[in-house]
Design a protein around this nucleic acid. Sequence first.
DNA 1: CAACCAACATACAGTCTGCATGTAAATTGA
DNA 2: TCAATTTACATGCAGACTGTATGTTGGTTG
Lengths: 208, 208
Amino acid sequence: MQQESTRRSNRDRTEATRADLIAAARKLFTEKSYAETGTPEIVAAAGVTRGALYHHFADKQALFAAVVEREAAAVAEEIERASPSSLNARDALIAGSDAYLAAMRAPGRTRLLLLDGPAVLGRAAMDAIDNRHGNRSLREGLVAAMRTNTMTRLPVEALTALLASAFDRAALAIEAGASAEDYRAVLMALIDGLSPALRQAPGPARTR
Amino acid sequence: MQQESTRRSNRDRTEATRADLIAAARKLFTEKSYAETGTPEIVAAAGVTRGALYHHFADKQALFAAVVEREAAAVAEEIERASPSSLNARDALIAGSDAYLAAMRAPGRTRLLLLDGPAVLGRAAMDAIDNRHGNRSLREGLVAAMRTNTMTRLPVEALTALLASAFDRAALAIEAGASAEDYRAVLMALIDGLSPALRQAPGPARTR
DNA sequence: CAACCAACATACAGTCTGCATGTAAATTGA
DNA sequence: TCAATTTACATGCAGACTGTATGTTGGTTG
């Protein structure tokens, strides 16, 4: 018998504490905001003290970065899971778009990834995170579409960034109560507008 | 002789103090950020005390809102000034786009209007400001283009918001050192993609 | 010119962040 | 296996900041 409950390896302790802190921080950062959430509140919710927080994270901002990183990874995973993997280039883009908009409906994600993230960590850091997780599949989809001549050839980085920002804005608007159908229709029109051949009536572009 | 220098009406005093505070705050908010700028620093730069600040503004956030409002108005004015007012619908959009990108090169504007603004004031408040100043001309340009059948008919609010977000993102990328030509080319392609008739080769879309 | 009010300055209370210091538990290596 | 060392925290403290309450001076008004 080995000290039944009080016998945890250091790695387990670290992992558990970090997870608790990230979960508590995520909850509070999304319910309120980064600025309005204090570290005393976070550690209370996580059941530890501020000492533990500053042992595992350099500062409040580093904890926030960990929360954002984790959230971006979750979004990327949801999108990849929802991608049927073999459609033609355009339909793959559409499927990815819908998956993104669906994923961003999870409460707090827009605030975390689109409002506080850029302001607290800076656009450059957010771009790095996006490129590590999110935007990758979008960029690859665009490259594939261009390779099959389904899409006008354009600078890939710029096109990826601009389309991504349009998706982001659509997610924000939809969360704020705007018509999801309207925004989806415009996004589709923007994408289809980039197809040399394809013009009007791209088939069943209905929302449902 | 009436007390030469110490004779100012209350309205003048208010106006001057508010202007000093807004100018000092703008400078610091853009050099650093909203979060990293304290009110003691602001009032020191403005040559007043914190009492004056809290007399004229409800709180630090209200001062920030005043700075943002003023900046958005300045951007809108620069755009309207640069608009030759009678071109065809598409060329008017192009001219407005270029004017916007040029205006956003003024130091600190991207941080103020695109990073800190949404995070501190919220997307809804920023939308209200944008609709009061900036987006108006863009929306009117889009409506005009649709009316002349130069552009596919789409939900106007959504299209305005999504195009505006693409412009915003382009401004951020350009400021971060990305190729202005690339981003401009993609923006033009997005706009021209919405023209039913117009397809490839929309004429001299060169950057310079 | 007396009463009033607007435009500040000063002082204070509460809270937060980051760090320094202390302690118990785990890991290491001889 | 057990002493040395490192890791994982808890506690306490210093500095800074925000918002407000209170005082004071100068303009405004009947």
